[in-house]
Design a protein around this nucleic acid. Sequence first.
RNA 1: GCCCGGGUGGCCGAGCGGCUAGGCGGCGGGCUGCAGACCCGCUCCACAGGGGUUCAAAUCCCCUCCCGGGCUCCA
Length: 469
Amino acid sequence: MLRIYNTMTRTVEEFKPLRGNRVYMYVCGPTVYDYSHIGHARTYIAYDVLARYLREKGYSVFYLMNITDVDDKIIRRARERGVNPIDLAREYERYFMEDMEVLGIQSVNLYARASEYIDEIVDLIKVLMDKGFAYETETGVYFDTSRFKDYGKLSHRRPEELSVHRIEPDPTKRNPQDFALWKKRDRDEIGWDSPWGYGRPGWHIEDTAIILTHFGPQIDIHGGAIELTFPHHEAEIAQAEAATGKKPFVRYWCHTGLLTVGGEKMSKSLGNYILVRDIVKEHNPEALRLMFLLSHYRSPIDFKWRSLESSESSLNSLYNMVERLRAVETDEELSEEERKLEEYYEDFKRKFYGYLDDDLDTPRAMAELFKLASTINKFLDTRERLNALLKLKLLSEIERIGRIFGILKKRPVIEMDLLERVLEILIDVRGELRMRREFEIADRIRDRLREIGIILEDIGYQTRWRLRR
RNA sequence: GCCCGGGUGGCCGAGCGGCUAGGCGGCGGGCUGCAGACCCGCUCCACAGGGGUUCAAAUCCCCUCCCGGGCUCCA
């Protein structure tokens, strides 16, 4: 039984989906106006692992994520570049998808673009107007937080505490904490027609509209980074529960800890902005996943290159263990030591999944996995053979863990550029042999490479290589 | 100002009343033609500071210091 921390109650609760085996899971997606950074990676990897684990446990998970493609920052950037905001959003959405792919995040069932839910958003605002939770002014339509008694229940704040603000509130609002549902804009900006005139949706309403459209008035899991708790998620609750009357809108509120670089939140001006696409150029994406898994998903992480390198080493040692295990010869006998190994393995499974069930405690689970790896290595050091069934059990369990965490997926396949470099060395050494008229050895190299589909062709003193088709 | 987190051994990081996670790095040894991988040992029980509660505190309470996040841009 999975237990998971709920921000609403601030306790770890037993996870029980509303509708039998099905899990409706929603996570706040990106605003696509720039490349994804490692903070995004942290958050989306965390929810990817949650979704994978739920599925591994047998739940039928529908994982929905929005893409914010209508937003002030997109509009500003598009204007700077003299392009259409939607085109700009599509471009960065493509980059986002590429980054997700590289990071091995494939668990999302549906990405929903805000711009494709304008009708639903307008309908939702209408309902809120009809029920008296929203009001119109010259600048837009606003949610009246004073009408929604529960406003503040997620972030545990009282409305009167919310009187301080960094940005001067719109003067037409009744209360400073009221938030925009619809922003009235001029025709020269991107927008849509609505009963309240031309304009575009407020920031919070898209998520609510998308969730209500696909999942209805109640969902199981709603995730996002901790910084979104207030006001974004608070606003979502207000909108949804005010509109549908159903409570709770979300049964389990999940929030991931923030990632900082150099002790501070990433920002371009601080120069500590690290993009996903830059990091994966030099580092294995699985190492990044592992690094995040070595911290709890709710803990803050201060990113350090050394930590990533350390994770890379750890990942390497896990791969080595798996390869050794794959390579070991098998037999049918079950020795006393193998019986002990099997016993240990059963104990490992209990602990490992026990930790994952305890609010996805991946650091402790990983510690157990490292212990298992060490035990297997130790065994393999002293033994020639391993019981076939035990080998199968161990390997399939490790593969399962790899599936949950999104690591250990790569078979040791030599990548193309590495192959080129290897052949360069081989050709160089072989050239030296030919110079010394050591043709027997040189030919053996050529023959053996041909056997595996690599053709060497000598042209004078030069050697070319190609792959057999 | 208010509301949240966090400060743990060379580094990263779990733990959240007793049972001294784990990883990375370093050093020594084993195994090895050499290297790597792997194994063993060491790096000697560290918990921001000061009070308190308790038979027992990194873990609970109080105070102080430092760092980060939120308070309608944000994963």
